[in-house]
Nucleic acid binder design. Structure first.
Lengths: 238, 238
DNA sequence: AGGCGCCAAATCGTATACAACCCAAGCCAA
DNA sequence: TTGGCTTGGGTTGTATACGATTTGGCGCCT
């Protein structure tokens, strides 16, 4: 076990590290993010940690409550719906633009993403496969070459990860494979309209795979209220 | 001249104050935002000021360059185009949704905005009228009751203010009056499609009123490169 | 026994201190 | 005169110190 990491890190690196941990569900919604604790891990003082936490709170990944500390955000049901509505508004356009602009290098990057996703899934690293699945959408938005909307999409996908942690119902991630594969085909063929449609239905699929009914007092909701710190270590490879 | 303001302010208040100053073009693109200076104005230490500046930099209103300080952002031509493309994607939908959901109270708020805009314009307060004109769009997005997209719109409008400061060509703001009025009519009548169309053409209008050609080496561009501190004083009333 | 209030430990919010760094003015040499 | 180098002032980056607030536990009263 790595005890301490004496090498100091920058605020961006810390934000990136926490972001990854949230994406990969090693940190669940409601988890406490103590400043001293994080500072000890990364070998910096609270000043830098606070900057990182503020950055994450501006991305709505973290909620800061005055005099109480920072916690991994717990999107409400309403927010969850709005996130997917926003994605349904933005991402089909991005897929369309991507299909119209993608070159061979871009398509290879997309295929590489899918491959990595499959590998992670086969190795049982569910968190990582989820992370990569999000990255696929981000990569697609980047190919569309509209940086601002791509930035919005990135934020929405980060929040989606939290939503999935809270409200996911189905187990099978197989639909993902299929949907992403079909998307690549359309993009590679330059079929913009088809890519947009596929993306739309993919998002509707995802949205409908959530359990967003008001009184879903499942075990997830319990954890949300009790908010145990639930630390996982588990150094990922590199 | 008000010398000092001994009452301490919170980071959010400072960010709000700076944001307003940028919106109203009292602070132009490229202006230096010294931490000590701002701290002295608001009666707080650099710690709080830094938090405010970081918040603004996450909204892309301010650029922080390491060891050099914070400056009011200077959107590139490319960014300018993308901002208006993104607005053209989001805002018509918001206008449509607003038209479908607006109640009488909401419409009264919109009318009040227009009235305030006219008042400011008549009083020659151009900066303020620009600020209110942006607020109109934000209010419309809020009425649409999609908080997340409304947040995106808010960010885009803030950046639009910078873009207008850098690249505005026409003088007349009269088109605004007309366009906003027509929008309210459509919203009040519940004509969603028409509101969306009006919003779209309004945005295209705005976009085309910018001078985004590459080699526009006007005085604006010069100021951008030389980046003199160009302090504006000019205490506005209140 | 149960509820209420006080106290202590822990954590956050802000200010301040010091180190690192950038920029500009001044100097020297070519 | 011009170019590069050095040095000083000023500004930012980070750490640390201290005050403020919350929280959980302990004891006391009912």
């Amino acid at each position: 076990m790595t005890e301490t990491r004496p090498v100091p890190a920058s605020a961006e690196q810390i934000a990136e590290g926490l972001s990854r941990a949230i994406h990969e569900h090693r940190l669940g919604p409601g988890a406490k993010l103590g400043e001293d604790e994080i500072g000890a891990v990364y070998g910096v003082s609270r000043t830098v940690v606070r900057a990182a936490l503020q950055a994450l709170s501006h991305q709505r990944l973290v909620t800061i409550r005055r005099h109480r500390g920072a916690f991994v955000a717990q999107p409400s049901i309403r927010e969850a719906s709005e996130v997917f509505e926003a994605r349904a508004l933005l991402e089909p356009r991005m897929a369309q633009a991507a299909a119209e602009r993608a070159d061979t290098a871009a398509i290879m990057r997309l295929r590489a993403h899918i491959a990595a996703e499959h590998t992670a899934l086969a190795a049982g690293m569910n968190g990582r496969s989820l992370y990569l699945s999000g990255k696929f959408h981000i990569e697609l938005a980047r190919i569309a070459d509209q940086r601002i909307v791509a930035g919005f999409v990135e934020e929405l996908i980060a929040r989606s990860s939290l939503i999935i942690a809270l409200y996911w119902r189905r187990q099978s991630a197989l639909c993902e494979r299929h949907a992403h594969h079909a998307l690549i085909e359309a993009v590679a063929a330059g079929q913009g309209e088809r890519a947009a449609e596929l993306m739309h239905s993919h998002l509707v699929d995802l949205h409908s795979a959530l359990d967003l009914r008001e009184q879903s007092y499942g075990p997830v909701r319990l954890r949300e209220i009790l908010s145990r710190s639930l630390e996982q270590d588990g150094e990922a490879s590199s």
